[in-house]
Amino acid sequence: MTAAGILSQFLQAGLALALAPLLVGWVAMCRAWLANRSAPPITLPYRTIRKLFAKDAVVAHNASPIFRLTPYVVFGAMVCSAAIIPSLATEVPFAAAADAIALVGLFALARVFIALAAMDIGTAFGSLGARREMFVGFLAEPALLMVLFTASLISGSTSLPSIVDTLAHRELAIYPSLAFSGVAFTMVSLAENARIPVDNPATHLELTMIHEAMLLEYSARHLALLEWASALKLLNYSCIGLALFFPFGIAGGDGDWGAIALAVPALVAKLGAGGFALALIETVSAKMRIFRAPAFLGPAFLLAVLAMLVHLLLGS
């Protein structure tokens, strides 16, 4: 553990916190451009969060402590995972605390709490959203695990920094297994982040909501934290995807300050391109019925399993 490692650890977590709303704003901006509308300012998510923090919180009379606790748990889980994922440098001292499987566990923890809180008040839409969220989660989680297993098999370790180290410093070659798991990971991320083929983040119709339906009862600082957490979740998934499939520009583990300084613009550029790709996917596809979600996530699981099998057989 070096000074550079600790610095890059803090820099990484801080950068994730600061960049997450910007990424959401950028995706919304790209979507507006692609739909030929005039775009909202890219800083809109920051303003929303600031506005929400200034308001007074209203909590239902029959809310249990779980309801009050959930925003902090979810936000904490997302910040923790942002600290684990090696998005800037592969030397992240905190990552020793958790490997790729624990990372999926952190996401699951956040999901369980948010679903519990949604059912806590007892409104119809809350429990509806919670059930749908668990439905999507139960389909998406195995596929995500399989993708991470494939990456772990390639590098021989489940620790995220060593996976990224191996993937970043390998010979340039065609890896069919990585291509398959990349597609599977994209599909899983779309579903997990409540993006269009599965859920519409911009909807105002409660009946079709999944993620938004669970947040209906929240207000003020609780809502601000949850919005920020979901922005962080999008950033975390993007960072995992970039680290696994485009691990170029990520600083190595030798405490090199220059490399870390170079990694920041590289990450921002990659996130910008990724955000545009996400907006493009969302623009060209239509939201599917909730019962079609297995038809979307089943192939994702299949692709992830095939990636693992192909890697085992071909060794590539």
Partner: peptide
């Protein structure tokens, strides 16, 4: 190898 994987897919 890539084509074989595509064939399987």
């Amino acid at each position: 190898n890539l084509l074989a994987a595509i064939l399987l897919l």
